[in-house]
Amino acid sequence: MTNTEALKELIYKMADDQLILGHRNSEWTGFGPLLEEDIAFSSMAQDKVGQSYALYQILNDLGEGDPDTVAFMRNADQFHNSQLVELPNGEYDFSLVRHFLFDTAEAIRFQMLTNCSHEPLAQLANKIKGELRYHTMHADIWIKQLGRATEESVSKLQDSLDRLIPYAIGVFEPSPMEDQIIEDKIFEGEGKLRQQWEEAILVVKSKTPLNLPYFSLVKPV
């Protein structure tokens, strides 16, 4: 028997993250450093907003309001998103590093959720993980290229990494009902996700001269 409140808490957090970052990504439309990146960020924005829509639909089936109302009519303090996704876009390096840190986590998260005990979420996770594969592919390619191209590009990426790592770790804030979520086999937990995320980030980073802090010493935001 799944604890519905714990399930809803998790889905709200994920849906809000996708919705907000989808909006931030969309702000690059018409404004990217090259047309191809306008188009790429717009594709990812559409995926993220579409993913949030699907998650709000599951919430709707669990008794919450309809997706348009829930997504667009709540006040700021009713959102469950991480601070990482709401930060203004800044320069391209900032948006790229955020995209890399966040989507690496999401790709693992939805892979893990394919085993979720709530069948509709497991099915959705199966679909979403396929979309996220392209997001991480995009992020990895750009981090590897800009992360070792020019002095300017390396130092910009390093600055953004330094600023964003604490926010990225904030994404793994455990739910107040984390134990219940794990016990009910809804999700294996933020702690396990974080562990896998750290390993994945290090693999990409190792192809560049970029530096990462000791994750255990970082205070999450």
Binding site: G32, P33, L34, E37, E91, Y92, M137, D140, I141, K144, Q145, L146, R148, A149, T150, E152, S153, K156, K207
Partner: peptide
């Protein structure tokens, strides 16, 4: 604001990573 990105792509030492 995007100039550094385009310049980085043209950098002679850039190693391109295939998808």
């Amino acid at each position: 604001r995007g100039r550094w990105v385009r310049e980085a792509l043209l950098a002679p030492k850039t190693e391109y990573v295939a998808p």
